[in-house]
Design a protein around this nucleic acid. Structure first.
Lengths: 359, 359
DNA sequence: CAACTGCGAAAAATCGATTTACTCATTTGG
DNA sequence: CCAAATGAGTAAATCGATTTTTCGCAGTTG
């Protein structure tokens, strides 16, 4: 029988102890790297561990501790590159510190968000990284506060009086977008956004409007916002271009700034429907970058969020709190990068070829 | 003091027991829904649970069981829509059965894949859903086999002699793509793919080639494959179009079929570089759909994988095994949907406007 | 030489549940 | 009417570690 039989139950610390001729407590100390063990005994433990293929059971190990080495991560969704990268990063960072990451998707629902949090509280996780659906004032953060959980809020948050927050510097990025668009001569710009209640929407809108108005007081900024769902936004956008403000030919905005990825998709889809091309008929910039944006024609200009920095600082802050760090909560803003690609041009530069509703 | 103090440790089963005036064993039975408890006692337990806000600690609960109510999921990456949706689905299905899903990304590395599996084995997970980096013969599946773990393999697998497998019916979908392209008159087609070792590449390629040759024996099918990394594929594709076979004007393929999402992106990016437009200069179909593909111009034709079906049947098979289901492993193939969009046209229909290397 | 100090390791308690074995009652059967 | 069977519940063992307490023994000190 050359290789070890696998079907039996795994060796426990007691199996190792009896093989090594020491007590379980000694094995535990050796595994934990305590130095007060006689070298000879330590060696015998190592040998037994090797022989039996012993590995500590994290579940049993965590049982006796106050804080368990589990981190919870709650994201609004897993389908986008942004949150996908975020989970990848968080998992990697948790693993580096010997923690296990349990990730769950709230699927853009605050009710589910709270349920997940309750389950994570049941697991007595050491900490939670919460990317709330709306903002820092939801029931989930409330629950964490009420139950004395330690956590960090990321992405759609500004600052909080109970938890550290880490998010992209939406305002600064939006200001730069404004500078770019105004600089290219745009004086009528539509801002579209999804998630009216999201903390960052306000920041992005204000950052954009403030800078745009400062640079060009005569600029006209229209706003189309919708709460969470995509379909209402699609309808609103259609209406906007059909009727009044955005509709009539010469009175149409020359650029669109979308505050969220989904908004960018909706805008593009609406342009398609109308036969408008970027950047000749209209310019487009979106918050949130995606891999496909640089291979399409035109390539879509986008604000790139610093995922690694956000994840890194979130975990840093979280572990500092887990290890007992005191002090008032800190709100961190990470700088974004604005990639101006082909979807942005100067107004009136193109033939305004489309324009009709191609129904 | 209106609301319960939160900073103290959570109530244990013993706290509930003493409040209800029964033993911990009785509480355990009530929580488990055992009927042999006197209704009066059951009620007192319920009241105490309500009063104290007691919830079972899943960690402690799992300790005493042989199989723990944890499912592990290992995906090659989290950044794509496909695996994002997959994790969302798996999490939801696990939760429905009262299990917790622990997801980890192998980041396209077989070494990491095995490390993750070792850690999941440490957790003594009840089962694993593994989407291997290459195919069913990697070290990860080997490890699962050697340690008697129960699991299901999905996506980049065909069939296995130890585990159930669930994947998209790549061959059938590729055959349909072939029918469409041949039907539109294409007789020179380039197939590009990433992940030379992936089980599904062979199936997709064979499915495509078989049907194409059957329908049009004179068809010319070129193949450009690269192992895992994107950059080599980009270079190979550039060479292909520069030199020999794909290079000269009249001798260029009229359609490209990409076997993987990344390949579709690389192809698009190469078309960009050369100034070729779809479908006039060249047609494009990709395996794997993405949200952006229907809003770009042209919309990109794609094979849609049935994520929900794959996830659903994978979990079904997994839980059947967890609950002791016997029988030979089963290989399931889920039918895909082929969405022919604007990126596919008939050859020679367009002006072949581009063609130069626009360096 | 008794008392003291300390080191290293073993024994025992603990974490929070589940499960087994066992104890009383109360019923049922012969 | 007594024995066997059933019902309802509890004490204790268990899961696999960690942590605290206790203990034995060697070497110092007064």
């Amino acid at each position: 029988m050359a290789h070890r039989q696998a079907q039996q139950r795994r060796p426990s610390i007691h199996d190792v102890a009896s093989h090594a001729g020491v007590s379980a407590a000694t094995v535990s100390k050796v595994m934990a790297g305590v130095t007060t063990v006689k070298p000879e005994n330590a060696q015998r433990v190592f040998d037994a561990v090797e022989l039996l293929g012993y590995r500590v059971d994290p579940l049993a190990s965590d049982m006796r501790r106050a804080k368990r080495r589990i981190i919870g991560a709650i994201m609004p969704e897993f389908e986008s590159e942004f949150f996908g990268q975020m989970v990848t990063q968080l998992e990697s960072l948790a693993e580096q510190r010997g923690y296990t990451l349990v990730a769950a998707s709230s699927r853009e629902s605050e009710a589910r968000e709270k349920e997940i949090l309750e389950r994570m509280h049941d697991w007595r996780v050491a900490g939670v990284v919460l990317a709330p659906v709306r903002n820092e004032h939801g029931p989930a953060a409330e629950f964490m506060k009420a139950n004395g959980m330690t956590g960090v809020l990321i992405d759609r948050v500004l600052s909080d009086d109970a938890f550290d927050t880490v998010s992209a510097d939406s305002a600064a990025a939006s200001a730069e977008v404004a500078r770019e668009l105004i600089g290219k001569g745009h004086r009528h710009i539509l801002v579209v956004g999804l998630g009216e209640q999201a903390a960052t929407v306000r920041a992005r809108l204000d950052g954009f409007r403030g800078t745009a108005l400062a640079l060009a007081p005569d600029v006209r900024i229209d706003v189309v916002l919708a709460e969470s769902d995509v379909e209402p936004l699609r309808a609103q956008l259609r209406d906007y271009f059909d009727q009044g403000e955005g509709g009539s030919r010469g009175n149409r905005p020359t650029a669109v700034y979308s505050l969220f990825l989904k908004g960018t998709l909706v805008a593009l889809s609406e342009f398609r429907r109308r036969g408008w091309h970027c950047p000749n008929d209209i310019s487009l910039v979106g918050f949130d970058d995606a891999e496909w944006m640089q291979v399409t024609w035109p390539a879509i200009a986008a604000v790139v969020q610093p995922v690694r920095q956000i994840a890194g600082h979130a975990m840093e802050a979280l572990f500092a709190r887990i290890e007992g760090g005191e002090g008032p909560p800190r709100a961190r803003l990470e700088p974004c990068q604005v990639l101006m690609r082909e979807s942005v041009g100067s107004p009136g530069n193109g033939p305004h070829s489309g324009g009709g509703n191609r129904q």
